[in-house]
């Protein structure tokens, strides 16, 4: 079974979620070819061998330095054909998910996004996907010979295998229609850990009382190597940018550790975090509903607790 994995990159480095996609493909079947588009460091591409890629195709055309969905789609369709791949694996993301959908239409593949585990092949080929915004799961059988699988973070444990991957340049033919959606500009936080990819998230709610108090959460996040998130009212009021908003109508996260500070735990917020491995809640109200969804809780004033917690973390690092 030949599997193609689309790996995303940012600033020349492969994204953590895409490394997971390679590990997923390797655990699914061992003939794994990865494909990267645009400007990516060679050592990064070779390094994919550590997660199970035998070969890495690199389409280095400068036109692909910006992630353009239609262009990426057509490159992947061609690469699936060239590699005789039956399965395309990629990370669920603002780029991966639309690309997955378009490739599936064009190749006649069965499509599953938001996949959270390796397939069960005991009866057909079934994947488990997260539904009802983390409140349930569905086992879905993918019956077409070709399959496109978009995986969510933490869908698989990353196992390292030995060896470097062979990197092959991949030439692509692009047409004007691939660029029908023109990118005018991109605004992106650089140098900080991105929320959907973070292993630890420190999130603040209305209990933080104002944007000027975020520095104590940022200090904690820095000590933990964590991303920062927030509740919906916090982004609605403009205290934090919209892409940090976690929950039903925002980003869904599945980190190892989610620390919620001054967030009441409304069901719509919980929907975005209930796949976290461990949840810590810090709230001054002992009746806050979030405690029911937490693994560890502290009742108290965030403004006193957070600086102390930051110090305690620094002490053990």
């Amino acid at each position: 079974m030949a599997i193609l994995v689309f790996v995303e990159s940012a600033e020349g480095k492969i994204k953590a979620t895409s490394i997971e996609a390679v590990a997923y493909a390797y655990q699914l079947g061992d003939a794994v070819t990865a494909i990267a588009l645009g400007d990516v460091e060679k050592s990064e591409l070779e390094g994919l061998g550590k997660y199970g890629a035998k070969k890495v195709l690199h389409a280095a055309d400068a036109k692909l330095n910006q992630p353009v969905i239609q262009a990426y789609t057509n490159v992947l369709i061609k690469a699936m054909e060239d590699e005789a791949a039956d399965i395309l694996v990629l990370a669920n993301s603002s780029l991966g998910t639309p690309v997955a959908a378009k490739v599936a239409v064009k190749t006649g593949a069965s499509l599953a996004s938001n996949v959270v585990s390796l397939p069960d092949k005991s009866a057909g080929f079934a994947v488990k996907k997260s539904i009802y915004t983390g409140k349930a799961f569905a086992w879905v059988e993918l019956t077409n010979p070709k399959k496109v699988i978009a995986i969510r973070k933490n869908a698989v444990d990353i196992k390292e295998v030995s060896g470097n991957a062979a990197v092959t340049p991949y030439t692509v033919q692009l047409s004007d229609s691939d660029f029908a959606v023109k990118t005018l500009s991109t605004e992106k936080a650089t140098g900080e850990i991105l929320l959907p990819e973070a292993n630890i998230v420190v999130s603040g709610g209305r209990g933080m009382k104002g944007p000027e108090h975020w520095s104590i959460l940022e200090d904690l996040a820095k000590a933990l190597n964590a991303a920062t998130g927030c509740s919906k009212p916090v982004s609605d009021m403009g205290w934090r940018p919209h892409h940090e908003h976690v929950g039903q109508t925002g980003v869904k996260v599945a980190p190892q550790l989610y620390i919620a500070v001054g967030i009441s735990g409304a069901i719509q917020h919980l929907a975005g975090v209930n796949s976290s491995k461990c949840i810590v809640v810090i709230n001054k109200d002992p009746e806050a509903p979030f405690f029911k969804a937490a693994d560890y809780g502290i009742v108290g004033d965030a403004f006193e607790i957070i600086p102390k917690l930051t110090e305690a973390i620094k002490a053990v690092k």
Binding site: I131, V140, N274, V299, L309
Partner: peptide, 25 residues
């Protein structure tokens, strides 16, 4: 090419462990 076989609910969450505010360590 897509058939839902069955649904599943996540396992129930265990009880929360409360930690005194003066003992963040």
């Amino acid at each position: 090419g897509y058939k839902i076989q069955k649904f599943e609910l996540p396992p129930p969450k265990g009880a929360v462990k409360m930690i005194p505010a003066d003992n963040v360590a």
